[in-house]
């Protein structure tokens, strides 16, 4: 058990804004929570490669093809940084991966929606990466050193993701009637799921208070969501895109945009596995993992043989 003195001392360090490093003492529950949210974050990056990867071979220009491929590759990189960070807590990457492929570990539900037209790629860049940046900018200040550093690196790379999406969406919104239709349709489909990315309302988010107390997060789900909505309303207007919420109104007093009810039933249903693409996403990831097994084994076996040869030679 964690002694009250140790807990007190730990809390003091957090409150002083100190970073916690892998070898430092930490409450068992802090470690568990970190493993949970860091690996979820990592899984999300990896599953997130699939909906966008869906358009690499069909991107409408060579420039957009390279941009998209580089972006999907960055997501592999981000997943890797985050798994690296999680591994400092004494867990193995393979175990974490198997936890989401075959167990109960979660990833962001946003990736359980399909990318139907190329405009979806632009909207993912603008909205989904936009939301991710809001979240990750906060996480870059996280109390756990390796998590904070991983997010600093991710944020540096992520701003390109959002910009390329917003830029292309602006072109489509200002393009031919077909492009405009695709752009608006994609925004209509992705808007609400994106708002859900910030997680349940603070009142329904059991982990939030604890994560904030420990400095893993510094803002609540609702604060982050509000910050995001305020920004997006402005950006949507700038490119002539309508947000699919008739209740959006500006509140002069608070200086914030108020928005309609988020369809939480849908959120919980997708989280529990019943979304349009949950099963397909998992199937694709399991297939890659299982078909990769012989490759991973081969390289290990080769390394083992070489080591034996070297030992014999010396």
């Amino acid at each position: 058990m964690d002694s009250p003195e140790k807990l007190e001392e730990f809390q003091q360090r957090i409150d002083n804004g100190e970073k916690i490093e892998p070898k430092d003492w930490m409450p068992e529950r802090y470690r568990k929570q970190l493993i949970r949210i860091m690996s979820q974050h990592a899984h999300s990056e990896i599953v997130g490669m699939l909906p966008e990867g869906n358009w690499i071979t069909r991107a409408p220009s060579l420039k957009r093809k390279m941009v998209l491929l580089a972006k999907v590759q960055d997501e592999a990189g981000h997943g890797l940084y985050l798994y690296s960070g999680t591994e400092t807590l004494g867990v193995k990457r393979q175990d974490l991966v198997e936890d989401y492929l075959y167990g109960n570990a979660k990833y962001s539900s946003i990736f359980n929606y399909p990318t139907l037209t190329y405009a979806d790629i632009c909207v993912i860049g603008w909205l989904v990466d936009g939301a991710a940046i809001v979240n990750q900018t906060m996480l870059a200040k996280s109390s756990y050193g390796p998590y904070s550093r991983a997010n600093v690196r991710i944020c540096k790379e992520e701003s390109f993701h959002k910009k390329q999406g917003y830029e292309m969406l602006a072109k489509m919104a200002d393009g031919t009637p077909e492009q405009q239709k695709m752009a608006q349709d994609a925004v209509n489909r992705w808007w609400w799921p994106t708002l859900m990315m910030f997680g349940p309302h603070d009142t329904d988010s059991p982990n939030s208070a604890e994560l904030i107390k420990w400095g893993v997060k510094t803002k609540t789900n609702d604060e982050l969501r509000q910050h995001f909505v305020d920004r997006m309303v402005m950006e949507a207007e700038a490119i002539g895109i309508e947000l699919p919420d008739p209740d959006l109104t500006y509140n002069e007093e608070t200086g914030h945009w108020e928005f309609g009810d988020i369809p939480w039933d849908e959120f919980w249903s997708v989280v529990k596995g019943d979304g349009p693409m949950n099963r397909e996403r998992m199937k694709a990831r399991r297939k890659a993992y299982e078909e990769g097994e012989w490759v991973r084994e081969a390289a290990k076996e080769y390394a083992r043989k070489k080591r034996l040869q070297d030992e014999k030679a010396s």
């Binding site: 690499i56 491929l69 580089a70 590759q73 592999a76 890797l80 694709a284 990769g292 490759v295």
Partner: peptide, 29 residues
């Protein structure tokens, strides 16, 4: 090669294959 993106045998190799694909498409471009 770009068809591997998201389906590689290990994360590190996913990145490597994407780099090679990006190089080749970049050369073509």
């Amino acid at each position: 090669i770009s068809e591997w993106a998201g389906h590689g045998p290990e994360l590190e190799e996913d990145l490597a294959l994407a780099n090679i694909a990006l190089d080749m498409i970049g050369h073509a471009s």
